[in-house]
Amino acid sequence: MRLTSEIFVAALVRRVFSEGGFAAVERRGAEAAGAVFIVARDRAGGLQLFGPAPQTLALEGGGRAFLREAARDEADLAKRLEREARFDPDFWVVEIETESPETYLTLVTDESGTD
């Protein structure tokens, strides 16, 4: 059974804080099934964006998997989230500060060669 988006986000935020990091919910989406996007920032100010993996890459047991998305800077990030808002306004955005987001997320690679 898959955790609701609200529980997944709460657990992620708590885990990051418990390990001495910083996390913030930037946008609250649908409680049960809103898509979750993660913005990971490093101490140097760099950012990475992770979005939900497509169903074809879903994990056994219903866990959440993420794909790295192209977002080189704040402008790219804003454009991507604006596109998502037009498509589905019920998404979440969580920002975490970490040098290694893979510690907190299950990352998968798109089989088409992009990740």
Results as ranks from 00 to 15, higher is better:
residue 58 A to Q: 12
residue 111 E to L: 13
residue 103 T to W: 06
residue 15 R to P: 03
residue 69 E to A: 12
residue 41 R to I: 07
residue 88 D to F: 09
residue 89 P to S: 13
residue 96 I to Q: 00
residue 25 V to C: 04
residue 21 G to K: 05
residue 1 M to V: 12
residue 102 E to K: 06
residue 65 A to R: 04
residue 26 E to K: 15
residue 57 L to Y: 07
residue 18 S to E: 15
residue 19 E to Q: 14
residue 55 Q to L: 09
residue 68 R to W: 05
residue 25 V to H: 03
residue 67 L to S: 01
residue 81 L to F: 06
residue 78 A to F: 10
residue 107 L to C: 02
residue 104 Y to T: 02
residue 108 V to G: 04
residue 28 R to V: 08
residue 93 V to K: 00
residue 59 L to P: 05
residue 105 L to S: 03
residue 46 G to A: 12
residue 109 T to P: 00
residue 66 F to S: 01
residue 89 P to A: 13
residue 68 R to P: 04
residue 106 T to L: 10
residue 98 T to K: 04
residue 93 V to E: 00
residue 80 R to E: 09
residue 104 Y to A: 00
residue 77 L to Q: 04
residue 60 E to Q: 15
residue 16 V to K: 02
residue 40 A to R: 01
residue 43 R to M: 07
residue 14 R to P: 03
residue 22 F to C: 08
residue 42 D to M: 07
residue 91 F to H: 06
residue 76 D to T: 03
residue 72 R to F: 11
residue 107 L to I: 13
residue 74 E to K: 11
residue 78 A to S: 12
residue 96 I to N: 01
residue 25 V to Y: 08
residue 27 R to K: 13
residue 20 G to P: 01
residue 69 E to G: 03
residue 33 A to D: 15
residue 54 P to D: 05
residue 22 F to Q: 13
residue 91 F to G: 03
residue 16 V to T: 02
residue 78 A to G: 07
residue 109 T to F: 13
residue 34 G to M: 02
residue 74 E to A: 14
residue 39 V to N: 03
residue 113 G to E: 00
residue 41 R to A: 02
residue 84 E to D: 08
residue 30 A to P: 01
residue 15 R to Y: 07
residue 42 D to T: 10
residue 93 V to G: 01
residue 91 F to P: 00
residue 68 R to K: 13
residue 39 V to Y: 02
residue 99 E to W: 12
residue 63 G to K: 14
residue 20 G to M: 07
residue 66 F to Y: 12
residue 25 V to S: 09
residue 18 S to K: 15
residue 85 A to F: 11
residue 58 A to N: 09
residue 49 L to Y: 01
residue 28 R to K: 15
residue 15 R to L: 13
residue 74 E to D: 14
residue 16 V to S: 03
residue 81 L to K: 04
residue 87 F to C: 08
residue 3 L to D: 11
residue 101 P to T: 02
residue 21 G to C: 08
residue 7 I to G: 07
residue 80 R to Y: 09
residue 16 V to W: 00
residue 106 T to V: 09
residue 63 G to P: 01
residue 103 T to Y: 08
residue 77 L to M: 04
residue 57 L to T: 01
residue 35 A to H: 07
residue 21 G to W: 03
residue 39 V to K: 07
residue 77 L to K: 03
residue 98 T to C: 04
residue 11 A to Q: 14
residue 65 A to P: 04
residue 114 T to W: 10
residue 23 A to C: 10
residue 111 E to F: 08
residue 108 V to Y: 06
residue 77 L to S: 02
residue 67 L to R: 05
